[in-house]
Design a protein around this nucleic acid. Structure first.
Length: 437
RNA sequence: CGGGGAGUAGCGCAGUCUGGUAGCGCACUACACUGGGGGUGUAGGGGCCGCAGGUUCAAAUCCUGUCUCUCCGACCA
């Protein structure tokens, strides 16, 4: 992509409303613009990141056997009246009336809707287990939206719902999602720690929150230092025992958010306990028949008996992850994207935009990188070199390639690693070889 | 929802107390210089001072109402 044709409105000064790094940087890097409190438009650069995260989440859901569907954003109140949550949910639910006076709502979650889909179509134990998910915009009318996309009112969420015949099989579905989450966050370049969680309004008795450790996290967390050495990009096991083994491994060391932590009962002694801050990016629940019972989602078992299905739900805050990743990955100059979610892999800068030779060289290099299938953002504008460097640092692409008349005299370009700051001079051929190997 | 703060050019802000025809920096446009870390100069364009009423010869400024944004607290992916 040529920057001259792109839409990348970066801001030099800090917008006054942004308090935390990720919000500030997302505005400055031209990723988002606010529409109303907690509601954002995604500009091209931000959308590329959002889509990359979404795809990694999708791939890992698919790997774990979940099936993608897409449910609407607007729901009818009827199903919610049936589950009893229409009155319980309170003002967080945005209620809308259509032209016929029917009560509609902008979905804050989809348990009722997915349960309805399930019960209409699935009537036999032979069709279990099933795990259905979608990646869709939700709306929760938070009392106080803040921190940009980390705590917006409208947000993109992956939510999956599992259906099993027995509690044991339900726990297995839960375990599969647990492992899928470990893999997902690892692939996103994050250190996320599962913590036993309060089940809150969704209910149930088995639940874990996944928290990304970052200095600016919203909640205080306590965890055993053993977590620091654990590898979360595990191979996805083929059977239930394998899943349970990984879950056991990851739930054995102590980890708790502040609500669940108590200094008196904490089993970890001083030096082994790490106190930090975390951002909740995923939450999984197993809640048995809490919804299947009132909503009559049952199947006929092998003996002909009617059994309420055992359900679980599994959320990932996809849009929140954009902010969460930035909180964990930035420095004083801007964002430092992990490669897996970077909007482009390479930022190519023409430092001699008025020098014909230099420009011709860049055009060829750009074409060759594109040809090799590498995502490259080419700053072909006439801005000064300083401005180009500052902008590239701000938007945080993993690799910067600076091409200027000075280096070209010696036949080299400069490659900089955004994260480490390491620079090396190399020929065009060496550069291409490095990225196409 | 309780308690604070703020709405003046795209962004960041001054001006409001003490009413008198709207300003600064950055950004933007043109030209020239510059060209490896947000460079320099000259000349420009852009604002119903959040909105609605009121007071006054005169309102960004005073009064009333209203909307929005934001910070702290209790709640959430």
């Amino acid at each position: 992509m040529r920057l001259s044709r792109y839409f990348l409105p970066t801001i030099k000064e800090n917008p006054s409303e942004a308090q935390i790094a990720s919000h500030r940087l997302m505005l400055r890097a031209g990723m988002i613009r606010q529409g109303a409190a907690g509601i954002y438009s995604w500009l091209p650069l931000g959308l590329r990141v959002l889509k990359k995260i979404e795809n990694i989440v999708r791939e890992e859901q698919n790997r774990a056997g979940a099936l993608e569907v897409l449910m609407p954003t607007i729901q009818s109140s009827e199903l919610w009246e049936e589950s009893g949550r229409y009155d319980d949910y309170g003002k967080e639910m945005l209620r809308i009336e259509d032209r016929h006076g029917r009560n509609m709502l902008f979905g804050p979650t989809n348990e009722e809707m997915i349960t309805d889909i399930f019960r209409r179509e699935i009537h036999s134990y032979k069709d279990l287990p099933k795990n259905l998910y979608h990646i869709q915009w939700k709306f929760r009318d938070e009392i106080r939206p803040r921190f940009g996309v980390m705590r917006g009112r409208e947000f993109l969420m992956k939510d999956a719902y599992s259906f099993d015949l027995t509690p044991e099989e339900g726990v297995n579905s839960y375990n599969a999602m647990f492992v899928a989450y470990l893999r997902t966050f690892a692939r996103l370049g994050l250190k996320a720690i599962p913590m036993r969680a309060d089940t809150g309004p969704i209910g149930g008795d088995l639940s874990h929150e996944f928290l990304v450790i970052a200095e600016t996290g919203e909640s205080e967390v306590f965890f055993h230092k053993d977590f620091e050495g654990m590898e979360s990009l595990v191979d996805f096991p083929a059977d239930a025992e394998g899943l349970q083994a990984i879950v056991n491994e990851w739930t054995t060391p102590y980890a708790a958010t502040e609500e669940m932590h108590s200094e008196d009962d904490c089993p970890v002694e001083g030096n082994n306990l790490i106190r930090g801050r975390g951002i909740e990016v995923g939450h999984i629940f197993f809640f048995g028949d809490k919804y299947s019972k009132p909503m009559k989602a049952s199947v006929q078992g092998p003996e002909g008996e009617m059994l309420n299905v055992q359900m679980g739900s599994y959320g990932v805050g996809v849009s929140r992850l954009v902010g969460g990743i930035i909180e964990a990955c930035h420095d004083e100059n801007g964002i430092v994207w992990p490669e897996a979610v970077a909007p482009f892999k390479i930022g190519l800068m023409n430092l001699g935009a008025k020098n014909e030779e230099c420009t011709a060289f860049c055009d060829v290099l750009y074409a060759e990188l594109e040809e090799a299938g590498i995502e490259v953002l080419f700053d072909d504008t006439k801005d000064g070199a300083g401005a180009k460097f500052k902008n590239m640092d701000l938007i945080g692409l993993p690799w910067q390639v600076a091409v200027g008349p000075r280096g070209l005299k010696n036949g080299v370009v400069e490659l900089k690693n955004r994260k480490t700051g390491e620079k090396e001079e190399l020929t065009k051929e060496a550069l291409l070889a490095k990225f196409t190997a």
